[in-house]
Amino acid sequence: MYRHACPKDRRVTYDLLTYEGNTLMEEIFPKHEQKIDEIFKVLDQQEMETMILSLKKVGLQLNNKKFLRKYLEFEINRRNIE
């Protein structure tokens, strides 16, 4: 990894992968993705959506972001109507 300063905002610094890091991620990520798929294959689509919404709700509680909270409320309400 390496850091790159944002040319437009001195407060911002980007963390970027090196070529070697990107090559490593291309090698290991498919195995990681396969393992995650194996773990969650016991959930059907509705259970997966419920879990995702629940985790987003917990994340919103921790981050207290108004926009995301409104989006989550919209999604929950939309799904309750269907």
Rank of each mutant, 00 (worst) to 15 (best):
L72N: 02
P30T: 04
A5R: 14
H4L: 14
R11A: 11
D37Q: 13
M48S: 07
Q34H: 12
E47F: 03
K35H: 09
D44H: 08
E27P: 00
S54P: 00
L68K: 01
L62R: 12
E75W: 01
K66Y: 10
I28R: 05
L72H: 05
L72F: 10
E38I: 01
V42E: 12
G21I: 01
V12C: 15
Y14W: 15
D15K: 05
I39K: 11
L24F: 13
N80K: 15
K31V: 04
E75P: 00
Y2P: 00
G21C: 03
N63V: 03
L68G: 02
Y2T: 03
L72M: 06
N77G: 11
E38Y: 02
R10T: 11
K70N: 14
L16S: 02
K35W: 12
H32G: 03
H32C: 07
L53P: 00
E73D: 15
P30L: 05
D37I: 02
M1Y: 12
T13S: 11
D37V: 02
Y14F: 15
F74Y: 15
L53F: 01
F74L: 09
M51C: 14
R11I: 03
N77P: 01
F40Q: 05
K66Q: 13
T50P: 00
Q61P: 00
Y14V: 04
V12M: 08
C6N: 15
K57R: 10
E47Y: 02
M1R: 04
Q61C: 07
Q45V: 09
K8A: 09
Y71L: 12
L16W: 03
I28F: 14
H4T: 07
L53W: 00
L16Q: 07
G59H: 11
C6G: 03
K31A: 08
F67E: 15
P7Y: 05
Q46P: 01
K35Q: 08
I39T: 12
H4W: 12
L72D: 01
L55H: 06
V58A: 04
R11M: 06
P30D: 09
I76S: 00
D9M: 07
E49N: 12
E47W: 02
L53V: 00
T23F: 09
Q61K: 13
I36W: 03
F40S: 06
P30V: 06
I28V: 15
F29S: 09
P30W: 08
N64C: 07
N77E: 13
N77F: 07
R79N: 09
S54H: 11
G21A: 07
V42C: 12
G21P: 01
K41C: 04
R69M: 12
Q34F: 06
T13W: 05
L24I: 12
N77L: 10
M51P: 02
K8P: 00
R78M: 12
R69A: 10
L43H: 10
Y71Q: 13
T18V: 05
D9Q: 07
L53E: 00
L60F: 07
L43G: 03
T50H: 14
L53T: 00
M48V: 05
E20I: 04
I76T: 01
K70E: 11
D9K: 03
L53K: 00
I81R: 15
M51Q: 08
E33G: 01
N22A: 08
V42S: 10
E49T: 08
L24C: 04
I81V: 08
T50N: 14
V12T: 11
M25D: 09
Y14E: 07
